[in-house]
């Protein structure tokens, strides 16, 4: 029972921060609400026996990535955007479609008896960094290497995109 209360409490915060992020006008506030949301999800990860992923979530996502976001928002002065839009039906239709997506998904999940199963046993050492590290270098060595290449591509891509082509002087 206590478990359930904690879940609903955290879920409420997660949904509230997500909604706030979408609704608030100021981009800086949006980013901060997203950070909150990411932290709440990290707490869920801890509850679900995934301390390593929770740490990565906090460090990489809530930490580095969102700082980058905030930095760019500040740099561009893009807290608010002006200008009218010609898309009159966009927001109501998008809202309706989003509601339909959520409603449909919930309906399907409720029809899934397998999903109602109690938590399986995840032996404690499985979620810890050592086990994950071992897996990363055996079964998941290929995705691991691919990810490193992806990071490299992103890095070079950023350099290419950010370099001011007008002042290259080639």
């Amino acid at each position: 029972m206590g478990e359930l209360i904690v879940f609903y409490l955290l879920a409420g915060i997660a949904i509230a921060t997500a909604l706030a992020m979408v609704i608030t006008r100021n981009a800086v506030h949006s980013a901060l609400f997203l950070v909150l949301n990411l932290v709440v999800v990290a707490v869920f990860y801890l509850l679900l026996g995934a301390p390593f992923v929770a740490m990565v979530q906090i460090a990489v996502y809530a930490g580095a990535v969102m700082v980058l976001f905030l930095f760019v928002i500040m740099m561009l002065g893009a807290e608010r955007v002006g200008g009218a839009t010609g898309l009159r039906w966009q927001a109501p239709l998008a809202g309706a479609m989003g509601a339909a997506l959520i409603g449909g998904a919930l309906f399907a999940f409720l029809q899934t008896p397998a999903g109602l199963a109690p938590a399986g046993s995840l032996p404690a050492p499985l979620g810890d960094p050592a086990t994950i590290g071992e897996r990363l270098l055996t079964t998941y060595v290929l995705p691991f290497e691919i990810t490193s290449i992806l990071l490299l591509i992103a890095m070079v891509g950023v350099v290419v995109l950010a370099r001011d082509s007008r002042s290259e002087g080639k």
């Binding site: 995705p143 990810t147 290449i149 992806l150 591509i153 891509g157 290419v160 995109l161």
Partner: peptide, 24 residues
Amino acid sequence: LLIVFLALEWLSFPLYVLAGFARP
């Protein structure tokens, strides 16, 4: 499926950059 996802991202990143290569 994991490789499908990673491959999709792998091929997409360079394409994003290439699409914008005629910058500015």
